[in-house]
Design a protein around this nucleic acid. Structure first.
Length: 419
DNA sequence: TGACGTCAAGATCCG
DNA sequence: CGGATCTTGACGTCA
């Protein structure tokens, strides 16, 4: 089982995707942006390799306006070398990547212009995969599209337009159930007839269920038959409901207990699970650590080094509890560990806790900080205590110091990520 | 015509 | 002027 995350990596410097407004999209600007984004992608891939993340979705915004005529850069030639280099890293590490054009790429549209745009967009996505030199198991996932008051005709148009696609797209294309129009049984019907692999999305299914009432594992098994050996291991999308938002909204983090219960229900574990969740790589590593066969305590200790100050800010009790939990080096208490982290994140920070943690972190720079830096920090902290400055501002200052004085231990801390 | 979803760019406000 | 916060953009469907 491989578990991964989508598009962006949180808490890792130099992994941001840049873009611009279409009116500012000059050749020079676009070239700069592409160069920047490819560097970010390479950093994300490096991060994934270092952290044993073997499944990853590449953002569609890698090449700004990648399928818009405004972008006339022959990027696959200009950046051929770096693309090949990144692709080699991916393939060599055994990582599987994918891409997912958004809800606005509609292959079955009535308007021919929109269909042409959709095909151009799929061309663009396939070109990325091709220029990375990746095999057809690295998929491009789309939804069926609109209904236009006549699902039968709409499906027919999907099939017809699918046949117009180039082989380099077809060999990678995968279809997925959505949260509004096409249920998993709709998509399975299409996938079986047209020989297209089907991705099951559990949350879309919850929001837009099939008439046939069956548990998730039934549909996952049903989708399995659409995955041929040339397609690689079957993939699904997994997410949890954000309780504070409307149905279908992704949760901030993956609740580990709920995730493991889901995994328990699965009939087979030869499955790739793409998480769709706000905290991205954080949840991916959590789920990987709780399902891995390599139960090494040092993995949890490494996680703890990143989570500890964010936990301490919310709950000193949970902080002590986790420290105690990780004391025994013969155990691998991954589930208890993440349950405690989640439980602390459910609590609010207090001004007292935040000041305590900020002072603790200041301790890393105490000996090298300039008097002026110390004065500014103390002033900020005083303002924060009186409600005149935000904790964000305090953290920003501490981040600046962390970078300046190269405190590597703090550079990875989620203290700066989870605010 | 606006909501939907997503994220960063761009615009504007504030001290 | 720099930093913080609000608004816009880019895409297509549907109510």
């Amino acid at each position: 089982m491989r578990i991964g995350y989508a598009c962006l990596t949180v808490g890792v410097p130099n992994t941001e995707m840049k873009t611009c407004l279409i009116k500012n999209a000059s050749d020079q600007k676009l070239t700069e942006l592409i160069k920047h984004n490819l560097n970010s992608l390479e950093n994300m891939i490096d991060y994934n390799i270092d952290n044993r993340v073997e499944l990853f979705r590449i953002s569609s915004s890698l090449i700004p306006f990648g399928s818009n005529p405004v972008n006339r850069i022959i990027w696959w030639e200009v950046f051929e070398k770096q693309l090949k280099k990144i692709g080699k890293k991916i393939a060599k590490s055994g990582m599987r990547v994918s891409m997912h054009p958004g809800q606005y790429t509609v292959l079955n549209a009535v308007d021919e212009n929109i269909v042409t745009n959709a095909i151009a967009d799929l061309d663009y996505h396939a070109r990325i995969m091709d220029s990375l030199g990746l095999s057809p198991e690295n998929k491009i996932i789309i939804h069926i599209g609109g209904v236009y008051n006549d699902k039968k005709q709409a499906v027919k148009r999907f099939s017809k337009n699918y046949e117009r696609l180039d082989e380099t797209i077809k060999k990678r294309l995968v279809i997925e159930n959505d949260d509004k129009s096409y249920t998993i049984s709709d998509v399975l019907d299409i996938g079986k007839v047209m020989d297209i692999p089907v991705v099951f999305d559990n949350l879309h299914h919850k929001v837009n269920p099939s008439d046939e009432n069956q548990p998730d594992c039934y549909w996952i098994d049903a989708c399995k038959t659409t995955w041929k050996s040339r397609d690689g291991q079957q993939k699904i999308h997994y997410s949890q409901q954000n309780q504070e938002k409307k149905a279908g909204s992704h949760s901030k983090t993956i609740g580990i207990t709920e995730f493991l219960a889901f995994c328990q229900e699965l009939n087979s574990s030869d499955l790739d699970i793409m998480l769709e969740v706000k905290d991205k790589n954080l949840s991916a590593i959590k789920c990987i650590n709780c399902t891995t066969a390599k139960k090494e305590i040092k993995r949890l200790e490494h996680e703890w080094s990143k989570y500890k100050y964010a936990v301490l800010e919310r709950s000193p009790l949970d902080y002590l509890e986790i420290r105690k939990l990780l004391n025994n080096k013969d155990r691998y208490p991954s589930i208890e560990f993440y349950n405690l982290v989640e439980s602390s994140f459910a609590k609010e920070t207090t001004i007292g806790n935040s000041i305590n943690v900020a002072q603790h972190i200041w301790g890393y720079f105490r000996t090298m900080a300039l008097p002026s830096e110390k004065k500014y920090f103390l002033k900020l902290l005083d303002q924060y205590e009186k409600g005149e400055a935000s904790i964000k501002k305090v953290k920003k200052n501490l981040w600046k110091m962390t970078v300046k004085y190269e405190q590597t231990y703090l550079l990875d801390s989620y203290y700066y990520v989870i605010i």
